[in-house]
Design a binder for these strands. Sequence first.
DNA 1: TACGTGACGGCGA
DNA 2: GTCGCCGCCACGT
Length: 102
Amino acid sequence: MEPTREQRIWQVVLAIPPGHVASYGQVADMAGLGRQARFVGKALGKLPAGHSVPWFRVIRNTGQIAFPEGSEAFERQRSLLEEEGVEVVNGRISMSRFRWRP
DNA sequence: TACGTGACGGCGA
DNA sequence: GTCGCCGCCACGT
């Protein structure tokens, strides 16, 4: 049974170490999807309940959280990141400091 | 089958 | 470092 694209995406996200973040494009590339960064977002939206995938470590290439600032999802992601020591300022993260480099 | 959409990225200014 | 425009392609309707 070959892993689906979504399964590979989740596998890559699971490999992101705590305290670091990766961009959608980075995950897409590492999952062998090329430039399909958009598909990564969709795949994360399809995560089944009870999963252990650290979806909150995936953000935009610009360092911004992909949700509208102030939304519930935004606050959830921000608090999860800060718990790991990732500094979020104005809904933004310094990519040069926290970007995951395998 | 065809069209619109989207948790996005790269590039130039 | 920022901002705007266009490209990308799988998926739902």
